[in-house]
């Protein structure tokens, strides 16, 4: 059964509203949401993501060990009934630090991905749509951000933001990742704005900003969603390298990134220090991917998987 037929069917079942006997026509976004939630992979992705969130925030409460507690009797021990996922080289319980790390990584990964892509989409679309001065200014900023080494900026900013929380850290990570996508978006916008439906909207009096958000950005959603899902994992990894320079997540605080960095050194000799945190990262990224793919297909009426 095709998706459209299903949509019509569900509409007649649920769409009764008001005094008229006509069925209500669902709006654009409710159609997208409906199509998305009808895909099994989206449901699986959402379930896994919810499970991860639950594990990250509820899981630590179940552990007999505290977050900063160290078991001086067992260093680098494999998983056991006492330490469910083993311990690291300072005697910390891996179960609890991995889950606490997961908390940070979920927040950082998802927020950074969404912010990065949103900034890229907005900057690129505005530059491409308005061209002229707007384009010059925005692209000048983009080029500047591309050529300036991010570590240089960090070094300058470090004293000022040393003690601010993770929000600043998230914003900073996002600030380093949007430029290339913005350039792609700008190019696509320049070609999209010549489409007749954009002209039609303009000639019916829709404001340029509305046109950008209503017509231009939704028509690039495939690119943007792929970009956002990739950004989730790259943000989590990038966070590690920043932490290495004493910035962002710092000991005793942990994140999946710092744990992976730590574990990778002893992945062969003590695999449990590496396997669990990496596994969680992979599961997180895959869940996000499933949701992203579903969203992409829901937004694209011509996608193959919808027709099949």
């Amino acid at each position: 059964m095709s998706m459209s037929a299903e949509r019509v069917a569900s509409e007649t079942e649920t769409g009764q509203e008001g005094g008229t006997d006509e069925t209500r026509i669902p709006g654009r976004w409710s159609v997208v949401l409906g199509t998305m939630l009808r895909q099994r992979r989206v449901l699986v992705g959402l379930a896994v993501l919810l499970l991860l969130v639950a594990a990250a925030w509820i899981g630590p409460l179940l552990s007999p060990w505290g977050f900063e507690e160290r078991d001086y009797a067992s260093f680098l021990r494999p998983p056991s009934p006492e330490h469910w996922l083993g311990t690291d080289n300072t005697g910390r319980d891996l179960y609890i630090i991995t889950l606490v790390g997961l908390q940070k990584s979920i927040i950082i990964g998802l927020l950074v991905a969404v912010i990065t892509t949103a900034v890229a989409a907005v900057v690129g679309a505005f530059a491409g749509y308005f061209l002229n001065l707007t384009d010059k200014v925005l692209m000048w900023v983009t080029d500047l951000a591309l050529v300036l080494p991010s570590f240089l900026i960090l070094a300058i900013l470090f004293p000022a933001i040393r003690d601010s929380g993770w929000i600043v850290f998230v914003l900073l990570l996002a600030a380093f990742g949007w430029m290339i996508t913005a350039k792609m978006v700008r190019g696509m916008t320049i070609s999209l704005k010549e489409r007749e439906y954009v002209y039609a909207a303009r000639y019916m009096g829709v404001s340029p900003v509305r046109i950008i958000f209503r017509h231009i950005i939704p028509n690039m959603s495939s690119l943007l969603i792929v970009d956002a899902t990739i950004n989730v994992s790259s943000a989590i990894i990038a966070e590690t390298s920043l932490s290495y320079f004493g910035f962002g997540v710092q000991a005793p605080d942990v994140s999946l990134g710092t744990l992976i960095a730590l574990g990778s050194r002893q992945a062969v000799t003590h695999p449990w220090t590496f396997v669990f945190c990496t596994g969680l990262l992979i599961v997180l990224v895959m869940a996000v991917n499933l949701i992203g793919e579903g969203l992409r297909d829901a937004l694209d009426p011509q996608s193959k998987s919808r027709r099949a």
Binding site: I25, R28, E196, N219
Partner: peptide, 20 residues
Amino acid sequence: SALDPRMPVFEIVAEPLRTH
């Protein structure tokens, strides 16, 4: 190309009405 491929027909026809 005159109709936004990502919009359902209802939204397309409603766009001028909404704008005004």
